[in-house]
Design a protein around this nucleic acid. Structure first.
Lengths: 229, 229
DNA sequence: TGCCTGTCGATTGGATCCAATCTAACAATC
DNA sequence: GATTGTTAGATTGGATCCAATCGACAGGCA
């Protein structure tokens, strides 16, 4: 585990004003990318040593991650990275299916041609991306590009958070089924419907996209049993 | 004997296992009920003295509340209770309008007659409740009673969180317009549509209910200007 | 043998202490 | 008189220290 962390530490990234901010961002990234796999115990002392800070910023960062449902706290036992279960995946998709069409509807009237072009570039980039671990970020950026003009910061933040949470499942998808299941055709259909300002069609495509991804993942997760064991 | 013990344990209120849990729950309640009005600075030393603990559980609780968008942290300046702005209210309603119909749709097929009767009792209780500060909790319980069988714990938790956040706005409603704006007729219509298992009708009523509350509140907040000043 | 109990090490929760930073007031300079 | 530099106080961020709790294991007892 410390090896995976060391790699993340090497990257510089943005300048954080407090150690807590820095630790929180790094840990979230590590969890969402799978560098810290589900079920990993998060020992405070160990993390403190890895980040070269004391245990306190670690604790505060873990508290924030707990509120984001990324880690699970048990009093006097410690924090662990939340598991990936079929129930949890279904929950995540239900939340996305509620939030994303709403975000799209709010955003659609204010999207510009520049936004559409950006989204198009991202879809194309997904076709030519060879590194599976980067597909999640691209997928996220594509979706968020379409929601960006919603003008409701908290709705957008929630959407982004749960979209990022889905990265963990996307890794399963690609590993299990290959790129065909990225459903690039659906991404392009969604983009075209949005460009035509057809809110009903766009949200219908989006809902079908999410429902299909959920069904595929459910089938896969239930077939292989609890991934924890 | 173990059954008798279990009963005793259930009777007592929530037993907080750590000081942080306790402080977090108390602070959240204080913010949502308006006991700590928007904009209040949250001095750590002061809170520590009030709760008779050290500053550390205060800090961890504040971190969790920050992740729930209830307080705003600024490095080296401190935490304040987030303001109530028209934008924020619109944001909250947009999130509720996305989450609650979804929760209702998932829950509706599994609701029992006992659930409907409970919801009915809560609506009736709202008619006879004389204490304005308790209306928020009743309103929340009514809505959540209808969503309770959704079987998606994280979706439900998110819904509950944002429904609770709306308590702050409900206080404005009642103070400004009186009980007529509780829209008990809409609550009853929603209950009847749910009882008839008519998901489309029920979600339509719910969406209209939320949209109307939002419109009313927007009008009120914008007329009186920024509540901060 | 099997179960209960008590002790020990590991780990977390909480308290106290120190350093870094911000705010504000005041003095000096232009 | 306005602006800027400085300094003191307040407040937070982070480190260190202590106490409470949990898990494992060994030993006593039926």
């Amino acid at each position: 585990m410390t090896a995976a962390l060391a790699e993340l530490l090497a990257e510089k990234g943005p300048r954080y004003r407090t150690a807590t901010e820095y630790v929180e961002a790094a840990l979230r990234q590590a969890i969402l990318t799978g560098a810290l796999p589900p079920g990993s115990p998060l020992r405070q002392e160990e993390l403190a040593a890895a980040f070269k800070v004391s245990r306190m910023p670690i604790r505060e960062a873990l508290r924030q991650l707990e509120a984001q449902a990324l880690v699970d706290f048990q009093p006097h036992k410690g924090a662990v990275v939340v598991e990936i279960t079929p129930e949890d995946a279904a929950d995540n998709y239900a939340i996305r299916a509620a939030l994303e069409p709403a975000a799209l509807r709010h955003s659609l009237p204010h999207l510009t041609e520049a936004d559409f072009r950006l989204a198009e570039e991202i879809v194309d980039a997904m076709d030519s991306e060879t590194d599976d671990s980067r597909l999640g970020a691209l997928n996220r950026r594509f979706h968020m590009a379409l929601y960006a003009r919603a003008g409701l910061p908290r709705l957008l933040a929630l959407t982004a958070q749960h979209l990022a949470g889905a990265d963990r499942y996307l890794l399963f998808h690609v590993a299990a089924f290959g790129r065909a299941h990225l459903h690039q055709d659906q991404h392009r259909a969604l983009l075209e419907a949005s460009r035509a300002r057809d809110a009903d069609a766009a949200t219908a495509i989006l809902e079908a996209h999410l429902a299909e991804a959920n069904a595929t993942l459910q089938h896969y997760l239930q077939r292989r049993g609890a991934p924890a064991g």
